[in-house]
């Protein structure tokens, strides 16, 4: 299957890309797809705890609706990955 990942804020800066299309096995979870992405250690640290779990502060939106890391993806799904931001 092919899914589109779109990154925001600090995640976008660490990824070096705003959006990318990835290929994965049908039914791979959101976590699985993100864990396979290679954009360097800082990118990984933004997303994942040392245990490998996705940080709870990361907002996942699949096809426009909030989702969970356990969500199994389908061909054509759009995954947006938001990192927390504050004011100033």
């Amino acid at each position: 299957m092919t899914v589109t990942l779109t990154y925001f804020a600090q995640i976008r800066r660490k990824a070096g890309v705003e959006s990318e299309t990835v290929t994965a096995t049908d039914g791979t979870t959101v976590h699985g797809v993100l864990a396979a992405i290679q954009h360097g250690a800082e990118f990984g640290e933004l997303l994942f705890e040392k245990t490998g779990a996705l940080r709870p502060v990361i907002l996942l939106v699949v096809n426009g609706l909030p989702s969970t890391p356990e969500r199994m993806l389908r061909d054509g799904d759009s995954v947006q990955v938001f990192s927390p931001v504050a004011g100033g």
Binding site: Q10, E45, P56, V57, L59, S83, P84, A86, G87, G88
Partner: peptide, 24 residues
């Protein structure tokens, strides 16, 4: 609810354009 813990990677200083913060 939105942020169950303090984000470890958030920095006090960050890139921003004044008009963008003014939009918010």
């Amino acid at each position: 609810c939105l942020y169950p813990e303090e984000p470890p990677a958030w920095k006090r200083q960050f890139p921003v354009l004044g008009a963008v913060s003014a939009m918010a």
